[in-house]
Nucleic acid binder design. Structure first.
Lengths: 199, 199, 199, 199
DNA sequence: TATGAATGAGAGTTCATTCAT
DNA sequence: GATGAATGAACTCTCATTCAT
């Protein structure tokens, strides 16, 4: 199974799908939408998902009503952040390649998780949250691509399958977030996993 | 370093320390305290840490005031649950032994996490929450004991250290919780880690 | 009208009336009652009338139930404190005499008020609270005695009447409490009133 | 020292300062703010400072959230009432003048106190509460103006100083409130004080 | 369309009072 | 009679959401 051969082609298509639904927005509305998402990402990263929507509005420099016009429900806002994050992750996975690509992806993700709470909460929702299945599938495909590449290059054992790779990815991300690990610990922990994956 | 030689002796002492602070409670108060903790564990497992204290009271079959008499703050309640869970984990780790003891502990913990949200959120707080450091230390010691045993039996590579074992434990627990993994996936994921730990 | 000639005689009687109603108490109960009243006086003086009954119990070194056995209602406790304070004030007024007796009483009361919130809140209730009319009457009589003495000695103008003396007493006490006046201000303020009372 | 020469000029300025802080409010918000303050004044006057914020909301005809949007804390609400009352008192003091101005101010204040609990509790906080020092200073200045005028007109003894005048004002106001005095008693009590102040 | 004030259900917490021990 | 745990109504405060401006 080779994901990589098919991917480059529809890259753009699904990236767009992830970001836009509905009719195109007026210029200022689009700008506001982006500002809100940025602010929300920061706020939720700092304060957790319980942070108030007012705080998001404040940091975005818009009124609360504007937030709710763009995202009728707090959950919608959360989902939107997740979608955007997923899109970034997929893009990142898409840019990597080669025998060590998957390892590199693990490393980067874990490093980011230490800094960004949202990356984690996003991955955590995979399989649980009903609203992001499609985007999640795309990520799985991207990671699947890296896995296939590594396996055909012989850097990962052939019997390893995608689900456990995803599971490890999610676990590490979670752990890295909550544990607030120093750089060295992160490396040592990854080392164990890489050893487990390598032939 | 051999934890195992010293542990069995004071096992009982610290187990008691974990569970009791303050003067002994009246019979009915003790019963209520236990009921509240049980209810809280269930409720928070089902609904997450945002579940209302009222709900806990309702399920425990006591009035809300009783909950607050025992745990003046919601946080106190959360902390108490954590302490109890930790104590259980430590007890469990203390009962295991032999070359495969640590692997068994990984397996059990991951299995529990899939069922109990709290196990996870507990471990997640390790190193973050200020209130549980002592109990956490005890768990680390217990796991350290298992690690030492495994390493001297040659089932785990000698360069592996306690911090990354804890990190892996926490990560997997988190992952198992949020991902809601089926039995087989759990096994396959653990297999990767075990391979990484074995010589 | 000379209150003083009649007062010494029934001094004991009303003092007793003020303190006891109901059958005599067992020794330990009496001791507890006193401790509770002492504690309550302190607590309410420090924290205001909103202070919790638990706090009173704690400081008295008894359990909350004991407080409520002695004073079935928080209001009863408050009333009891008032009664005791009133009794003390009356006793103090009863011991004073001579042309400057009333002035001395003013001075002492104002000084106390600066230290004790309760003295004030007690006097403030005079005429408002329904529960203390009898004891209040006694105080009025005692002060009336001092007034009569001063007037017949010519140190207070004859047209001054008891009600305004009581009103001034109450006002100053209130003021001294809330204003937290330094010694000198207290003296200067009293001086104005004394000038107003003197011929 | 002549307060009077400087006062009329900046009267308006500080009166505004007392009432407005922050950006201008929307019309409806301003209306609600006023309604809440009015309701609060009534409610606290009737029920004391322990009255519930819910009751205030009910009487103001707004939802509880609105009260808390305007006054994030119950204390803020209390403080706001105080400020408004002080502003009124200062305005009133500012409009009086002439040799009998101060006496008139005493009379009016005492009369109001008999009707409005809040006037009293406001003055009672003078020197105690940390939040109103500026406004209180303004009142002192206004009263100081009246005092100077009366002294230069010879209706008040020259050795009388501002602090004791304030102390008497506060005391009487307190007394008038709590004592619930009839009109005549109020007059007779004031008479004593006025005699004490006059040459 | 953006604004931000209003809403109101619901959360955590307190405390006078009751009652089993 | 003393104890102190249990009760539950009441209170302050928060926040997602609605809607007039």
């Amino acid at each position: 199974m080779s994901y990589d051969s098919t991917y480059p082609a529809d890259n753009n298509e699904w990236r767009l799908n992830l970001l836009e639904d509905g009719p195109p927005l007026r210029a200022d509305a689009q700008r506001n939408r982006a500002r809100i998402l940025d602010a929300a990402e920061t706020v939720f990263a700092e304060l957790g998902a319980n942070a108030s929507t007012e705080e998001v509005a404040r940091r975005a420099g818009v009124a609360i009503g504007t937030v709710f016009r763009h995202f009728p429900t707090k959950d919608d806002l959360l989902t939107a952040i997740m979608k955007r994050l997923l899109a970034r992750l997929i893009a990142e996975a898409g840019e990597l390649s080669g025998p060590e690509g998957l390892f590199e992806f693990f490393t980067r993700l874990t490093a980011q998780a230490a800094a960004k709470r949202s990356v984690v909460e996003l991955l955590a929702r995979a399989g649980v949250d009903v609203q992001l299945p499609q985007a999640m599938t795309h990520l799985e495909q991207a990671v699947g691509g890296l896995l296939a590449e590594a396996q055909s290059a012989g850097t990962i054992r052939p019997e390893i399958q995608l689900p456990e790779v995803m599971a490890l990815l999610i676990s590490l991300t979670q752990g890295a977030l909550h544990g607030n690990w120093p750089e060295t610990l992160r490396a040592r922990t990854l080392a164990v996993i890489f050893t487990g994956l390598r032939p």
